[in-house]
Simulated scan of single mutants.
Amino acid sequence: MALFINFLIIALIIGAAGYQIYRVVKRAKKGKCAACDYDCEAKKMLNKAQKQQN
C-alpha cells in the first residue's frame, strides 16, 4: 500500500511539473515572457517608453 501511495505522489509531482512546462511553452509561442504576470522593472520601463511614443 505504501508503494502505491509513493507512486501516486510521484505521478502528481511529475504531472504538475509537466503542466507548468506546457504553460510556459504555450505562453512563449505567443511571444510573452515567463514573468508577464508580474509587474517587474522591465515591464514598467516598457510601458513608460510606449506611453512616451504616443
Rank of each mutant, 00 (worst) to 15 (best):
Y38K: 13
L8E: 06
R23K: 15
I21R: 08
Y38N: 07
C40L: 04
R27S: 06
Q53S: 06
L46R: 11
Y38T: 10
E41Q: 11
Q53R: 11
Y38W: 10
K43L: 00
K43P: 00
K26G: 06
N47V: 10
A42C: 08
Q50K: 06
G15C: 02
M1D: 14
I5D: 15
N54L: 08
M1N: 13
K29F: 08
V24A: 01
K48M: 12
K30V: 01
K43H: 06
Y19M: 03
Q52E: 13
C33K: 13
Y22K: 09
K32W: 03
I9V: 13
Q52T: 05
L46T: 05
L3S: 08
K32N: 10
M1P: 15
R23A: 10
L3R: 10
A11N: 06
N6C: 02
K30W: 01
A28I: 00
K29E: 11
I13W: 01
G15Q: 01
K43V: 00
G18K: 02
D37C: 05
K44T: 08
C33P: 09
K43C: 04
K30S: 08
G15R: 02
A35M: 12
I9C: 05
K43A: 00
N54G: 05
C40I: 05
I9K: 12
K32V: 02
L12I: 11
I9Q: 09
K43M: 01
Q53L: 12
G18A: 02
Q53G: 01
C36D: 11
A28G: 00
Q53M: 09
L12F: 11
R23L: 14
A2R: 04
A49R: 09
I14M: 11
A2W: 03
C40G: 04
L12N: 12
K43F: 00
D37R: 07
G18Y: 01
A28S: 02
Q20C: 00
L12V: 09
D37A: 06
K43G: 04
M1T: 12
K30P: 00
C40F: 01
L46Q: 13
K26D: 15
C36I: 04
G31K: 02
D39G: 11
F4K: 14
A11L: 13
F4C: 08
Y19Q: 02
R27H: 05
Y22G: 08
R23N: 15
A34N: 10
I14T: 13
A11M: 11
L46H: 06
K48I: 10
A28Q: 00
A11Q: 09
L3Q: 10
N47K: 15
Q52F: 01
F4S: 14
R23Y: 11
A35Q: 06
K51P: 07
V24L: 07
M45R: 15
C33F: 05
A2S: 04
C40W: 01
E41W: 14
A42D: 09
K29C: 01
A34F: 11
K51L: 12
I10D: 04
C40T: 06
L8D: 07
L3M: 05
M1W: 08
K48Q: 14
F4P: 09
K43Y: 00
K48A: 15
Q20K: 06
I21G: 07
A42N: 10
D39W: 13
I5L: 12
C33T: 10
N6D: 02
K29Q: 10
K48E: 15
I13S: 03
M45I: 13
L8C: 07
N47R: 15
K51A: 14
K30Q: 12
K51R: 15
A16W: 12
N54A: 04
